[in-house]
Design a protein around this nucleic acid. Sequence first.
DNA 1: CTGCAACCTGACCATATGGTCAGAAATGGA
DNA 2: TCCATTTCTGACCATATGGTCAGGTTGCAG
Lengths: 215, 215
Amino acid sequence: MNTSSDAERPKIGRREANRRATEEAILNAAETVFAEAGFGGATMQLIADLAGLPKANLHYYFASKEELYRRVVERIFQIWLEAAQAMDDAPGPAEGIGAYIDAKMEISRRYPNGSKVWASEVMHGAPVIQDYLETTLRDWTAGRAAVIQGWIDAGKMAPTDPQHLLYMLWAATQHYADFGHQIEVLNGGPLSDADWRAARESVKQIILRGIGVAI
Amino acid sequence: MNTSSDAERPKIGRREANRRATEEAILNAAETVFAEAGFGGATMQLIADLAGLPKANLHYYFASKEELYRRVVERIFQIWLEAAQAMDDAPGPAEGIGAYIDAKMEISRRYPNGSKVWASEVMHGAPVIQDYLETTLRDWTAGRAAVIQGWIDAGKMAPTDPQHLLYMLWAATQHYADFGHQIEVLNGGPLSDADWRAARESVKQIILRGIGVAI
DNA sequence: CTGCAACCTGACCATATGGTCAGAAATGGA
DNA sequence: TCCATTTCTGACCATATGGTCAGGTTGCAG
């Protein structure tokens, strides 16, 4: 054994570990503040306070407010894309779309702030992730639409415009994050485990039956 | 007859007419700017420029940025509520929910900025319309949920959680306004009349079939 | 026509904010 | 231990923004 039980992984010294932890803390704080106040309403001071750092320190790790924001949005997009794989390698729409809804509902529950930042970014014309929309997202969407069309051609689901089906999947699932506040007010409080389960099953039931898949 | 063919309606002089027109122009400009930049990113100067007025004039009509914003949000909420009546007086879900989807899709198409401002407001915790959520919206939602439950009990549609069905209706329709930019990118340009028709029919098809209503 | 009240606006102000920087403190290899 | 490098931070700055106000202009009742 070596000196002690310090490094979980070789190569990462205290410096590097600290750096990553601080960056992570800043990104988390930024995600919260951007979600709650929007880009314009967010303040480097607010983010710094939430992260427990002096404001000047933020600028040591992130050159500008824009760059910090960009990093937040990119991180969300990654999570979003990884979850999208839930739809891959499925034999048919029942499994593929069902799993996709499960994954996206889970993201809405676990990362509501990320979803809000993404929504805000798109609503304001996608100033920083326009290229993602035009490349990565466009390609992914086209691929998924083709898969869905394949299922339709194989008679595994009712004829449905794949593009609009995808929009409905995004809309229905992300709504629970983006409009979470409204939902909590109407629900009379935060959603319980049972509430989330009911939400997930409702979405799956309506959409799967809506595309002619037995449930 | 009176002096000439001036007043369409009695009682409204040039003063009053001017006032209303100016207020309207400011509200329209504000809606656009708030939608594109968010509350924090919006600038009284930007709104003034878009309305073609000096900034100081805005403060003659609206005491503060907050009040102007509040007026914009309230106006949207009115349109939203009026369209909600499309669901009333329907004999069953096919007509009621079908008409509601039609109405909401039309709003998404005609007033995308209003929808965005509303979404932004809710996402940021509804700082100015919290009371609307707790009173008007809550009551309306409860009423509609009861109607839907009645349809279910009458065997006119499949058993479905009314609350989550409403969320899906809001999500699916408003998505075309709030995420209009993303949709346009994926669509390779603005949606045509045919595109909008396809969107509307897709939403209706999936949801109506999803709740067990023949189409 | 006249006076008052409503309407309009350029110039100005206090504040908040993103960002900078010089220098202090911590770190780690030699 | 020593010192170069990285990390951290209080103090500061330029700018943008919401809001104010004094004074001018316009509409309209009497």
